[in-house]
């Protein structure tokens, strides 16, 4: 059981040092976001900020607003390009807020469940596990791991051999690196 003691807006403040409450809804993040286009994000970044404000302003609707923000596809479709954070006139780290929403969504088991969001989550998990286990990413193993997780066995099937021909894909893993300290540190930081 996870207890919800923190508002999302507070978590964003803690992690990024900037406050969604400062957002004045000018729309500059939405206007310059490469993923805020038809067929991609379902809720604009500007509206995500508004939901986080509503969560604080209207306690009676906090659960609902948090749910809307967490279960949107938007955080998962954010490419992390930082255009929003760079341009925000109020200095809100919007891209950083997207990180918090993704992490918090997984923690509360409350995220979008569309196929593409599951794919994106699968890739992140495969990638991070691989990084933490081997210390370095071996691209071929990453691709295989991802395909096994998602069942996209034949996507980009033609690219593999072509990359190999160019000497861009190595069959054997290269050096790995020791990550025991990293893993210990991650555990330590989890329990404050």
């Amino acid at each position: 059981m996870t207890t919800v003691s923190q508002t999302l807006a507070n978590l964003v403040h803690q992690r990024t040092g900037t406050r969604p409450l400062d957002c004045y809804q000018c729309g500059r993040c939405a206007a310059g976001c490469p993923q805020n286009v038809p067929g991609e994000m379902d809720i604009s970044p500007t509206r995500i900020m508004r939901l986080l404000q509503g969560e604080t302003a209207f306690p009676e609707k906090a659960v609902e607003y948090a749910r809307q923000a967490l279960t949107a596809e938007t955080p998962w479709l954010c490419a992390g390009c930082q255009a929003c954070t760079t341009r925000c006139p109020q200095g809100v780290d919007i891209a950083g807020a997207m990180d918090v929403l993704r992490q918090e969504g997984l923690k509360r088991r409350m995220t979008a469940t569309t196929k593409r969001v599951r794919d994106i989550q699968a890739l992140h998990r495969t990638f991070l596990n691989s990084a933490l286990r081997h210390g370095r990413i071996h691209e071929l193993f990453l691709v295989i791991g991802y395909k096994l997780r998602t069942g996209h066995l034949f996507q980009d099937a033609a690219l593999g051999p072509a990359m190999m021909a160019k000497g861009k894909l190595h069959l054997l893993p290269g050096k790995s690196a020791d990550t025991s300290r990293v893993k210990t540190a991650v555990e330590r930081l989890k329990t404050p």
């Binding site: 729309g27 500059r28 939405a30 206007a31 310059g32 976001c33 805020n36 604009s44 500007t46």
Partner: peptide, 13 residues
């Protein structure tokens, strides 16, 4: 000009 219609959910224009 990159803009967004914030009164219409922030749709990009």
């Amino acid at each position: 000009v990159q803009a967004a219609d914030t009164l219409n959910g922030g749709e990009r224009l």
